[in-house]
Design a protein around this nucleic acid. Structure first.
Length: 263
DNA sequence: TCACTCGAGGTGACACGGTA
DNA sequence: TACCGTGTCACCTCGAGTGA
């Protein structure tokens, strides 16, 4: 039985009775920033960095994206490598209660390992103990059904099992987020490798994208929530990497190289 | 395990050119 | 002449990677 019950737009801790409002608890700006950073991500490291930052800002410790197509599993996570390896080699997705629940619910849900069978020596008990050992005790999972029978799960997990539900967000945004991660990973997998010295960091891409949209440093600073001097710093670094002498030239070069989409 | 290196992220101070 | 936008330089912190 889950500890957390959904009550319309609220969730309620069954033990403490404390209610948490879905959506309101979530920092709006963080979500927008994540979407922006995913939009400009050029490689898996940038996606991972953006998700990691978002995960922490929501009060969780780790994230895991899992894609299941028939028997084929693909993972993309900040979970400990040993756990990721064990999960795949032991085919834990077939018994993982989160995966099972995701198939049934098709909606954002909260879970805790404390609710999984804690007695006996069943494979599920072993799975539970190992998950907890690796710092995966409770979390929130967003299940989304993709095309051609592909199932996607995005989980935000925490090692803290002593109550206190971290921030959550509404279903619409949750699905949007999973789809963005899914398609961004697909696009990057299909991309041709480019000179690593010319790869811009997530922040550099963020500032460059706003510059392309006509924002000056102050306006970019306002929308990104960082200091204008910092915006300038990232644009400087981007100029140095792409060999541009000014921001307009930088935008032009970035567009020519397909680093920026014009939407 | 620990020290070291490196890159990313963030900021301050200052200079310079254009403009009202 | 003051203000604003932009560019340059320098510094700090933090986390990840690496080698002893």
């Amino acid at each position: 039985m889950p500890i957390i019950q959904r009550l319309g737009w609220q969730i309620k801790d069954r033990f403490t009775g404390q209610e948490h409002r879905i959506g309101e608890a979530f920092v709006d700006g963080e979500f927008r920033s994540l979407v922006d950073m995913l939009e400009v991500a050029q490689d898996e490291a940038m996606i991972k960095g953006a998700l990691r930052q978002f995960t922490h800002s929501c009060g969780y410790e780790r994230f895991a994206y899992l894609e299941k197509e028939g028997a084929q599993i693909r993972t993309f996570s900040s979970y400990p490598k040993p756990w990721e390896g064990l999960y795949l080699s032991a085919d834990y997705s077939s018994i993982d209660p989160v995966v099972t629940e995701a198939k049934r619910k098709r909606d954002v849900f909260f879970w805790t390992a404390e609710d999984w069978p804690g007695r006996g020596s069943s494979p599920l008990r072993k799975f539970r103990d190992e998950a907890i050992d690796h710092g995966i005790r409770c979390g929130m999972t967003i299940p989304v059904e993709g095309g051609y029978g592909v199932s996607m799960l995005l989980t935000f997990a925490s090692s803290k099992g002593d109550g206190g539900v971290p921030a959550a967000f509404d279903s619409r945004r949750a699905v949007q987020l999973v789809m963005m991660v899914h398609y961004r990973l697909k696009m990057i997998a299909a991309k041709v490798a480019i000179n690593p010295k010319q790869v811009l960091s997530p922040r550099e891409m963020l500032c460059l994208t706003w510059a392309m949209k006509g924002k000056n440093t102050l306006e970019t600073a306002a929308v990104t929530g960082i200091n204008s001097r910092t915006v300038q710093h990232y644009l400087d670094k981007a100029r140095a990497k792409l060999g541009a002498e000014s921001v307009p030239q930088l935008v032009g070069i970035a567009k020519d190289r397909g680093l920026l989409s014009s939407n």
